[in-house]
Computed example of a mutant assay.
Amino acid sequence: MAKAHRHPETRDVQLRMLLAFGGGLLVFLVLAAIGMKLAFNTTPRWLPQPANVSPEAPDLQTAPRQDLVNFRAEEDRQLKILGWVDRNAGIARIPIDDAMRAIVSNGLPDWSQQRSATAGADGCALVAAAAPRAPQAQTCRQQSGTER
């Protein structure tokens, strides 16, 4: 008996097609990366960039614990001082201890009664009693004609 001649299978993988697919995939990925960079690079090119600022390496806190201690110390200092927040609007800041004592001794104001009182003619008295030198009190007295 003669041996049958066997041929290698040629239908499974074609090396040329595999290399073409791999090359095409590589070209697609490179073009996609370039396209993404062009589409989503939002850095304005017309603005001059400072020499010491780098978006890749932002400035970090060198001593975060000390920064927190300083921040809290400043907050505590603000809670203990007397001063104007907005002088023109008549808004002042009082020390927190004084504010707590005032609340304990006088209680919280009843805003519903003050709203109805300010709607009437006696509203200026409430404003003047609460903050006599405030611009709101002067405006109220001018509008009601009781300027002293």
Results as ranks from 00 to 15, higher is better:
residue 41 N to F: 04
residue 65 R to S: 03
residue 103 I to R: 12
residue 17 M to Q: 15
residue 26 L to P: 01
residue 59 D to M: 09
residue 62 T to N: 09
residue 88 N to H: 04
residue 125 A to R: 13
residue 87 R to P: 00
residue 130 A to N: 12
residue 61 Q to E: 11
residue 35 G to W: 04
residue 67 D to L: 12
residue 87 R to L: 08
residue 17 M to L: 14
residue 21 F to I: 10
residue 84 W to L: 04
residue 76 D to R: 14
residue 102 A to V: 06
residue 73 A to T: 08
residue 87 R to N: 03
residue 64 P to D: 01
residue 68 L to V: 10
residue 118 T to W: 08
residue 20 A to S: 12
residue 132 P to C: 05
residue 99 A to W: 09
residue 88 N to D: 13
residue 91 I to E: 04
residue 12 D to P: 03
residue 121 A to T: 11
residue 31 L to I: 07
residue 38 L to A: 03
residue 50 P to S: 10
residue 76 D to W: 09
residue 123 G to W: 07
residue 70 N to K: 10
residue 28 F to R: 00
residue 52 N to L: 09
residue 100 M to D: 06
residue 49 Q to T: 14
residue 83 G to H: 02
residue 36 M to G: 02
residue 8 P to E: 13
residue 76 D to G: 04
residue 44 P to M: 08
residue 84 W to T: 00
residue 102 A to K: 11
residue 36 M to A: 06
residue 19 L to V: 14
residue 41 N to M: 03
residue 54 S to D: 15
residue 63 A to W: 02
residue 15 L to K: 08
residue 87 R to G: 00
residue 102 A to H: 05
residue 129 A to I: 01
residue 12 D to K: 08
residue 76 D to T: 11
residue 72 R to D: 04
residue 38 L to V: 02
residue 94 I to C: 03
residue 125 A to F: 04
residue 81 I to V: 15
residue 131 A to H: 07
residue 78 Q to H: 02
residue 36 M to I: 06
residue 106 N to R: 14
residue 7 H to T: 10
residue 85 V to P: 00
residue 109 P to G: 01
residue 128 A to E: 07
residue 60 L to P: 00
residue 104 V to G: 03
residue 98 D to F: 13
residue 21 F to N: 09
residue 119 A to L: 15
residue 106 N to E: 06
residue 130 A to V: 05
residue 92 A to N: 04
residue 59 D to V: 14
residue 70 N to L: 13
residue 95 P to L: 07
residue 22 G to I: 13
residue 48 P to K: 14
residue 128 A to Q: 11
residue 77 R to W: 08
residue 50 P to A: 14
residue 132 P to Q: 04
residue 117 A to H: 02
residue 109 P to W: 01
residue 83 G to T: 03
residue 57 A to S: 11
residue 70 N to M: 10
residue 97 D to Q: 15
residue 31 L to K: 01
residue 54 S to I: 02
residue 35 G to N: 00
residue 83 G to L: 01
residue 115 R to Q: 12
residue 79 L to N: 12
residue 135 P to R: 13
residue 47 L to D: 09
residue 73 A to L: 08
residue 12 D to V: 12
residue 77 R to D: 05
residue 93 R to N: 05
residue 69 V to M: 06
residue 78 Q to E: 08
residue 58 P to H: 08
residue 6 R to N: 07
residue 33 A to I: 05
residue 88 N to M: 07
residue 27 V to S: 04
residue 127 V to A: 09
residue 113 Q to E: 14
residue 122 D to G: 07
residue 86 D to C: 07
residue 123 G to I: 05
residue 135 P to G: 06
residue 111 W to I: 09
residue 118 T to I: 14
residue 100 M to C: 05
residue 9 E to K: 10
residue 22 G to Y: 10
residue 24 G to W: 06
residue 20 A to Q: 13
residue 51 A to I: 03
residue 125 A to L: 12
residue 110 D to W: 01
residue 98 D to N: 15
residue 119 A to E: 14
